[in-house]
């Protein structure tokens, strides 16, 4: 028996919105530590890694490890039927070929359940090596979303250059060029609003705007985002989800010809 109940059901709605543009199907791996999802997009340019810890749920039971392959468009359709304040419960029997989503309104007067067929996905599990990054940048997630949106008007690619002075986002295209520089916040009153840079070595990398814009669909999950960069390795864009886990996106850099 698997059962995961979340009073803040809107988190699951937001998680689906944050991954469904990148992935059409994925496996939810459930064990007694929680729920993990890890999948590359079809073109193997980006990878999504989601972790929701068991202790972040209001009720969590997983008697046997279970891997549930799901069509994410179908899951997104179902979760759109949940109210923002609904409690969401996912449940499945051991060895089941379906999963059930139950939505309860705050006053318990409306209870809906949606049963969905599971898919048999034969997906590879990937090991993500522990990496020491040359630069990490923490910044408000809404600011990062704004920068990605604004710069994608100028070109398909965005250059992210991090030095100890700050971080510069640049794009160049037919209409001209755009540069946005963020300095590290001098004094931190509210950590959520701060730009904090940790740098061992300066790094400049180029990324596809389209993917960065997909990642920013996770903005509503966290007030802050963390970017981790080293030369010639994938960028990591991490949104921490309060008290329950995180969603991390990995993106292969563009390579100079």
């Amino acid at each position: 028996m698997f059962e995961a109940r979340l009073l803040r059901g809107s988190i699951l709605k937001k998680v689906l919105e944050a991954i469904k543009d990148l992935l059409t199907q994925a496996t939810f791996d459930c064990d007694d530590s929680g729920i993990q999802l890890q999948a590359m997009d079809n073109s193997h340019v980006s990878l999504v890694s989601l972790q929701l810890r068991a202790d972040g749920f209001d009720k969590y039971r997983c008697d046997r490890n279970i891997s549930m392959g799901m069509n994410l468009n179908s899951v997104a359709k179902i979760l759109k039927c949940a109210g923002d304040k609904d409690t969401v419960t996912m449940k499945a029997q051991d060895n089941a070929d379906t999963v059930t989503f139950v939505f309860e309104s705050p006053n318990q007067e409306k209870v809906s359940d949606y049963e969905m067929k599971l898919m048999n996905l034969d997906l590879e599990h990937l090991g993500i090596p522990e990496t020491e990054y040359s630069c990490t940048i923490r910044m408000p997630s809404a600011e990062f979303a704004r920068i990605c949106r604004d710069l994608s008007q100028f070109g398909d690619s965005m250059v992210i250059a991090c030095t100890k002075e700050g971080v510069k986002f640049s794009a160049t295209g037919e209409i001209g060029s755009a540069n946005i520089k963020l300095a590290q916040t001098a004094s931190v009153d509210k950590e959520e609003e701060a730009v904090i840079i940790e740098m061992d070595e300066p790094v400049t990398l180029t990324f596809a705007c389209q993917y960065l814009n997909y990642f920013t669909k996770a903005t509503s999950l966290s007030p802050q985002v963390q970017l981790s960069m080293s030369a010639d390795v994938p960028l990591v864009v991490e949104y921490r989800i309060q008290d329950i886990g995180h969603i991390r996106y990995y993106l292969a850099p563009k390579i100079e010809d």
Binding site: G127, P129, A208, Y250, I255
Partner: peptide, 14 residues
């Protein structure tokens, strides 16, 4: 100009 890199090779199949 630039070409899009791929993730294959960065991660190992486990």
């Amino acid at each position: 100009s630039t070409t899009q890199g791929r993730l294959d090779g960065f991660f190992t199949v486990v």
